[in-house]
């Protein structure tokens, strides 16, 4: 009988015990390198940031903070931010929410989970909102709902298109029913904007889930996604717990949504600005 493992390559100290580094977020400045979660290659942070936080080996799109995203899309110095000082309050006295808000503000250097305003994209004026993944995973509470509603109202009044970058875990539990109401509130503003025959483009990025998917993320005239972005209503873990079976590979990924017909296209980050410019031009925005 052949002993098990006889043909295995003997382990040497240097080869064994190599722990794969966990993926740190791409915007931690103190770290020199990160490991790509998709191809496991080491990437220098500076180079990664220069490459729009995309792995230069396998094209994996890392999570990107809202300011980086804005810089990637808006012409230099063209962004005028709206409602910068709106901050969430703990309306329902929810346990630990104050602390969580404070930590998120420190972690993301933003006041809330979305930034809104107007900018130029290759000289074309547009209203824009960009959600912030490093602020409570872009969850939607009253301030997020309010800021997005106001930018749609502003865009309606000024006949501007709206480009919205979505990234969110869904409605913010800590604001209870008031978060749920934001889904209706924003939907109303989107509908009004649309009834004025103005263009709304949503860009779904990893991850876009829950109440955001079930409202303004899916209400764009044109919906595009970044490669490999997770987009869905219920989270994969919740579904697995409900149906007690493993989910198929690629489930809820952008490529899957393209196949099932719920998004219009998948666009790589480096081509995004040109793509959006073309879409704006095709809708007669100058």
């Amino acid at each position: 009988m052949i002993r098990k493992g006889i043909f295995k390559k003997p382990k040497i100290a240097l080869e064994g015990n190599i722990k794969q580094s966990k993926t740190p977020s791409a915007n931690i400045p103190n770290e020199m390198c990160v490991c790509c979660p998709s191809c496991n290659k080491m990437l220098f942070n500076d180079e990664l940031n220069e490459n729009l936080v995309v792995c230069s080996y396998c094209n994996h799109h890392f999570r990107m903070n809202s300011r980086q995203r804005l810089n990637m899309i808006a012409d230099e110095d063209s962004f005028i931010e709206h409602n910068t000082d709106l901050k969430s309050e703990n309306i329902l006295d929810f346990p630990n929410y104050d602390k969580k808000l404070k930590n998120s503000q420190l972690e993301s250097s933003e006041n809330e989970a979305v930034i809104t305003g107007v900018c130029k994209i290759n000289s074309i004026n547009s209203a824009i909102f960009v959600m912030e993944p490093y602020f409570m995973m872009g969850s939607m509470g009253t301030v997020v709902g309010e800021k997005i509603t106001r930018i749609f109202e502003f865009a309606s009044e000024n006949r501007l298109p709206v480009i919205g970058f979505c990234v969110s875990g869904g409605a913010r539990m800590q604001e209870g029913i008031l978060s749920l109401m934001q889904m209706a509130k924003v939907s109303g503003a989107v509908k009004k904007h649309s009834d004025n025959r103005l263009l709304y483009i949503t860009v779904l990025t990893d991850p876009t889930m829950g109440g955001v998917t079930a409202s303004f993320a899916m209400q764009g005239d044109i919906i595009i996604a970044e490669p490999n972005a997770l987009v869905g209503f219920a989270g994969p873990r919740v579904i697995e717990q409900t149906i007690r079976q493993k989910l198929p590979d690629g489930f809820q990924k952008a490529e899957y949504l393209l196949k099932t017909g719920f998004i219009n296209d998948i666009v790589e980050r480096k081509k995004l600005k040109e793509y959006l410019t073309k879409l704006l031009q095709l809708h007669n925005y100058k």
């Binding site: 829950g210 998917t213 079930a214 993320a217 899916m218 987009v231 869905g232 209503f233 219920a234 919740v238 579904i239 409900t242 149906i243 989910l247 198929p248 489930f251 809820q252 099932t260 719920f262």
Partner: peptide, 12 residues
């Protein structure tokens, strides 16, 4: 929340 519901666009 199930596979089919997601495939057929529950959020949408």
């Amino acid at each position: 929340c199930g596979i089919g519901a997601e495939e057929r666009g529950q959020g949408q």
